[in-house]
């Protein structure tokens, strides 16, 4: 009986599992290297987790609607470069408004291209978004000639972002909370959210029930692009050094966070809370491996194996009962 309960928990409570595993990994890390238990480490885990959670917001929406967005990283990099380029180290509040609007615009355009390719044209989302991500990446080099004139925001913006309240909570974690509220409202308190869940679960049924599936999925890709643009704007402040393709590595991390959090790659089921828990697990694991001074290649290898195991446990599409 007890065994069944454990099995049920492991199998069905991905968020709980992610939190439990995070705790376990953190404890092991401390046990192996007691020096890693300090306020600073907490702060840096929180900061990294917040960044990843914000970046994975759009990815969560797209995967729930049975798509995938391989351009999250490139969109963020582009938005960050645009942000830094507009601010040019200045601190005028008007410029901040212009920069954030520009970041949103960049995201919206890339998202629209993703949506038109993956939904309107009916091409495989994985391929379309990956190629668009390539184009966006190259575009950064073309625009800046390879090395951007400005590589960082003004010190004030940067320290505002990275400032730690009570020495633990970085400001970016409050942005993550804000993002959480926004996505939670979008997914659980609007028709939009209901519709993307239904589309992701059974697109044909959604269509015959009267949902404008094509239009909604294009909007959803755009929404994801906008969220990635905002993530890029925040990332520009959070990171000390912006170059071309600065956030490209984020794409895979967002997918991993979403999947670990229990969102089905096949769509129709998932939550942003899960994504946040997945992000935490990913960051704690990466932190632990760094603290134990595992070589980067070994670190990638271990994380890859863990991802495959988690995918195998959680992400197999269940057969539909006829």
């Amino acid at each position: 009986m007890n065994k069944n309960k454990v099995y049920y928990f492991v199998k069905n409570n991905q968020i709980g599992m992610a939190l439990l595993l995070s705790l376990l990994i953190f404890v092991v890390t401390i046990a192996l290297n007691p020096k890693s238990l300090n306020v600073n480490a907490f702060g840096s885990i929180l900061s990294l987790m917040s960044m990843l959670t914000i970046a994975a917001a759009g990815q969560t929406l797209v995967i729930i609607a049975d798509g995938i967005d391989m351009s999250v990283g490139a969109t963020m990099s582009m938005a960050a470069i645009v942000t830094v380029g507009i601010l040019r180290g200045r601190e005028d509040p008007m410029l901040f408004v212009i920069a954030i609007l520009a970041a949103i615009g960049v995201g919206a355009i890339i998202g629209l291209c993703n949506g038109l390719g993956a939904v309107k044209a009916g091409l495989p989302p994985m391929v379309v978004t990956l190629y668009i991500s390539n184009v966006v990446n190259r575009l950064q080099y073309v625009m800046t000639g390879g090395t951007p004139e400005f590589t960082s925001v003004s010190l004030i913006y940067k320290s505002f972002m990275t400032e730690r309240l009570f020495q633990v909570f970085p400001v970016i974690s409050f942005f993550a909370l804000g993002m959480y509220a926004l996505i939670f409202w979008l997914m659980n308190r609007t028709r939009y959210g209901q519709q993307i869940f239904l589309i992701g679960n059974n697109n044909r049924a959604a269509q015959l029930t009267g949902i404008r599936t094509t239009r909604l999925k294009v909007i959803n890709y755009m929404m994801a692009g906008i969220l990635s643009g905002i993530a890029g704007f925040i990332g520009a402040g959070n990171s000390g050094y912006i170059k071309c393709g600065a956030f490209d590595g984020m794409t895979i991390d967002t997918i991993v966070a979403v999947v670990i959090g229990g969102t089905l790659l096949a769509g129709g089921k998932g939550s942003y809370a899960g994504t946040a828990a997945g992000a935490l697990l990913l960051i704690v694991l990466s932190n632990g491996l760094a603290v134990l001074s595992v070589s980067p290649s070994m670190k990638n290898l271990i994380m890859g194996v863990i991802l495959i195991i988690l995918l195998g446990v959680y992400n197999r599409a269940k057969p539909v009962r006829a």
Binding site: Q195, R204, A205, T209, K318
Partner: peptide
């Protein structure tokens, strides 16, 4: 293939026709 949303709840399945109409971003 054409009507049930197997992973979604009974309530959401019943509400689906209603989900399809109305303002996208209005509070629900």
């Amino acid at each position: 293939r054409e009507s049930i949303f197997p992973l979604r709840s009974v309530a959401e399945n019943l509400f689906a026709g209603n989900t399809a109409r109305g303002k996208l971003f209005a509070y629900l």
